[in-house]
């Protein structure tokens, strides 16, 4: 059964000057434990789609369900990871990690233990009592992911989480984040501009058209080398370039059309 189900979802923005139709007829179902990437021309409403799934925005038409229940308001099943880590400078790493748990009024002791355990597990155990400013960009983003995990979501929404990082950190971190997400058995939806990132991390890549955006195509990412390859292995796989070129071509048409 699908964990996330979008049926005929549409969304329009209203301003005093005009009405903008951002999304139209989005139908998508995402299975439990699946990793899906969303790519498309800038301003096509990729991030909007994440806000809809998270319950921060209401669709103008259609319905969104998580585990068979209609989404109304922010669901505790969903965790969000943003482009910037937004760690709070006035809290140390450990207290930053429990922010989500605090908001959701979860047990503090349990949250703290879980935070420490995750820090330890993902190689940041020594930094629990450091200030955020003492961490590197890649470390901060890993802390941000752990902060999301401490609140115990089933679904992770990743909104260009690596785009503020330098190329090398980006490659390393995407590999790590992939392993953390698989290790924790979470469902993930990644929005990105980076096509190679989208392909290497996901089981399926969804291409969106220009506004009003619809799903133009969904590509299964499957290589002869086997199932569940890590991003690194996928980039090395024989069929990688072919897949990349196919999606690139499709994207290019939308990008040109939106110019």
């Amino acid at each position: 059964m699908a964990q996330i189900e979008l049926t005929d979802v549409g969304l329009s923005y209203f301003t005093l000057k005009q009405e903008t139709e951002a999304l139209r007829d989005i139908n998508l179902s995402i299975k439990h434990g699946e990793f899906i990437s969303i790519v498309g021309p800038s301003g096509c409403g990729k991030s909007t789609l994440l806000s809809l799934i998270s319950g921060m925005l209401k669709p103008t038409s259609g319905k969104i369900e998580i585990d068979g229940a209609a989404v109304s308001g922010v669901s505790p099943k969903v965790g969000y990871m943003l482009q910037h880590d937004h760690l709070f400078e006035w809290r140390n790493v450990l207290n930053n990690l429990t922010v989500g748990a605090e908001i959701r009024k979860m047990d503090r002791g349990i949250a703290k233990r879980k935070a420490l355990e995750l820090l330890e597990r993902y190689g940041l155990g020594d930094f629990a009592h450091h200030g955020p400013s003492q961490l590197s960009g890649g470390m901060r983003q890993r802390v941000a992911l752990i902060r999301t995990l401490v609140a115990e979501p089933d679904i992770l929404l990743l909104d260009e989480p690596f785009s503020a990082l330098d190329y090398q950190t980006r490659l390393t971190l995407s590999e790590e984040v992939f392993h953390i997400i698989k290790d924790q058995g979470k469902t993930a939806v990644l929005v990105t501009h980076d096509l190679s990132e989208a392909i290497s991390m996901a089981d399926r890549v969804m291409v969106m058209s220009k506004r009003p955006s619809t799903i133009s195509n969904i590509h299964e990412i499957r290589f002869d080398e086997g199932e569940g390859l890590s991003p690194w292995k996928k980039r090395e796989a024989g069929g990688y370039h072919q897949t990349f070129n196919a999606i690139w071509k499709e994207l290019e048409e939308h990008v040109v059309a939106s110019l």
């Binding site: 921060m56 910037h84 922010v99």
Partner: peptide
């Protein structure tokens, strides 16, 4: 204070007093 900092709070379902 950046809007996205508050968006982060919102994504955890934070209320205005929080």
């Amino acid at each position: 204070i950046s809007k996205t900092k508050l968006k982060l709070m919102e994504s955890f379902g934070a209320t205005k007093p929080q």
